[in-house]
């Protein structure tokens, strides 16, 4: 590692991932910025960080990048593999390319930004985090999402918001189909403020008025024997 003032770099072409993650889990002292060179799709880059540090991943990340993140600002210059920022608690993760499946799964806090498309099950079981996707999201996004917001600037594939709890989804483009118990609702002033705030944080300039709101119809909250298993 090459310590230069408050910045440090790890080159995964020559250093082990464990070296990087153990450094990030230790006392960072004066270090404010960590650069990760040649990530080349390695798994679990910068997982479990619990410090207000900026991490720049200079390429494509593999599975679970920035999982369980707290406080850190993680910037992925390329694409992210499955489960990026899964179970994030706080902080910010920004994917400049596309994200694979289960982006932001069960994130409890923080903000995940994906400039490109996100794959299937984006924001599955979201528990309070916010996700902004610049492109499209795949099928079953926000499945059983409980709290937080998913903002989709492009289109959404099948079964959006299936079995949704109290998370709210905003989609600018087309929705191929809604999942069970998800419904379109009118945008309120509060929704416009929420979307505007999240777009601003993501550096996007879309008009919040272009977005549609999708939330739970709450008809699955209580068992209905008369429904005969059909919803």
């Amino acid at each position: 590692m090459n310590a230069v003032a408050e910045a440090i770099a790890f080159d995964l072409a020559s250093q082990k991932l464990r070296e990087l993650n153990q450094f990030l889990h230790g006392d960072l002292g004066m270090v404010k910025q960590v650069r990760v060179l040649n990530p080349d799709g390695a798994h679990s880059i910068a997982v479990g960080v619990n410090a207000p540090v900026t991490i720049n991943i200079a390429g494509h990340a593999g599975y679970y990048a920035a999982g369980m993140n707290q406080l850190a600002d993680v910037d992925i210059a390329g694409n992210a593999g499955p489960g990026v920022a899964e179970n994030m608690m706080s902080g910010r993760v920004h994917v400049h390319g596309f994200a694979s499946v289960s982006a932001g799964a069960s994130a409890q806090g923080g903000l995940l930004i994906v400039d490109g498309d996100a794959g299937l099950r984006c924001g599955i079981s979201l528990k309070g985090g916010d996700i902004v996707v610049g492109g499209d999201v795949g099928a079953f996004s926000a499945f059983m999402a409980q709290a937080g917001n998913l903002v989709v600037c492009g289109d959404a594939a099948e079964n959006l918001g299936d079995s949704l709890y109290e998370a709210v989804i905003y989609v600018r483009g087309k929705v191929k189909s809604l999942g069970a118990d998800a419904q379109f609702e009118p945008m309120t002033d509060a929704d416009h403020v929420t979307v505007a705030g999240l777009l601003k944080q993501a550096g996007l300039t879309h008009d919040p008025k272009e977005f549609k709101r999708i939330a739970s119809a709450r008809s699955l909250y209580h068992w209905n024997a008369d429904a005969n298993q059909e919803y």
Binding site: D40, G41, A42, H60, G62, Y63, N79, G81
Partner: peptide, 8 residues
């Protein structure tokens, strides 16, 4: 299956 096989 994964990018790490394409990286080189």
């Amino acid at each position: 299956s994964e990018f790490r096989s394409l990286a080189h």
